[in-house]
Design a protein around this nucleic acid. Sequence first.
DNA 1: CAATATACATACTGGTCGGTATGTTTCTGC
DNA 2: GCAGAAACATACCGACCAGTATGTATATTG
Lengths: 197, 197
Amino acid sequence: MQPDTTRQVLLDAAFHEIHRKGFQSASLTAILHKAGVTKGALYHYFGSKKELGYAVLEEVISDHLRTLWLEPLAGATGDPVTQLKDCLIKAGEQLNDKDIRLGCPLNNLAQEMSPIDQGFRERTDVMYKLWLQTISSALQNGQQLGKVRKEIDPEETALFIVATLEGCMSMAKNTQDKAVLLQCGKSVLNYLDSLGT
Amino acid sequence: MQPDTTRQVLLDAAFHEIHRKGFQSASLTAILHKAGVTKGALYHYFGSKKELGYAVLEEVISDHLRTLWLEPLAGATGDPVTQLKDCLIKAGEQLNDKDIRLGCPLNNLAQEMSPIDQGFRERTDVMYKLWLQTISSALQNGQQLGKVRKEIDPEETALFIVATLEGCMSMAKNTQDKAVLLQCGKSVLNYLDSLGT
DNA sequence: CAATATACATACTGGTCGGTATGTTTCTGC
DNA sequence: GCAGAAACATACCGACCAGTATGTATATTG
């Protein structure tokens, strides 16, 4: 097996185990079993369980955020309200029942680890700030294009949007019900519409 | 020490430890140390760690929900928009920095345990349903009184309100910043205002 | 006053955890 | 082709964990 492949297999296995059980309760043994390698391989690539967790955050989860939210909004040429709605709809579509039951990987890790580990907190913080800033910029751009109401504060609105998104995911996870996600998502879509001119 | 006192001391200690570390990572030894009793006392009152967790949910956290959100909204005589805003402001005021860092106890437990334990899921589900129903009823009442716009769907709106509340708490917890909570709360207040006539 | 139940305290157990020390094999550079 | 590094595998360790078995003091009841 190629070295880079083994590292990636480990990252993928760790991502799924952490997504399922949370970081603290994620078992290295389970990760190794799922990855099909042994402890020697893990500690060859990662110095500790925590470093493995950091890598999952910085490489796997970061990629998800980028492809789902950052890149679609980065080429901010059109109407940000439509772009945001497209992101939301596309993100919702690709969630299967298991994803709903397990919730947002970024929020899960941030919720679990930010109160008890600085390293996780700093890394999740960077990602949320990137997310907020991207939405805020898109909204600001939309205001200049006359597509978004001038009265709204882009930063405050971006924060509220992300908060509602995470809130919807949380409620759907708690109830384990996709209908909840859809109903909640509908309210978000309505709110997004209210931002347009 | 009175028997009921010991039980309550254990519940309080368990609540705080679980709030800090999450249920799975909460150490019984730490709980016992904080409560000032030994393992014999714990297993005299609770059959297992899980049962202790259930009791924390059903007795301690349930009480918080009741006093903060259910009872103020139950006597639904006035304008629900004002009542909801009062609840939000009051809830926000009594949160200190530690509470913000640790997040909403109900949401924490629901997020952590609902994917992996039916017992927790059922119990958190009941509490969320109660919360949603109370807000929904208040909104419906407000519609009859002409205080709330007729076009809105009370159930869908209640879901969105709770989702945004949990979302705001999550974002504040992630950033460990009270300013985030205040800014996010302001957006919620604006949204609540938009429901009125 | 005796018998029993309640309300704990203490000591211990098996299992799992993250981490490490020590191989062993394969690949790479000279 | 040989030395050394890279890429793993295997075996083991101390710490901690939830849970249990047993002991004991106090309160209750007949």
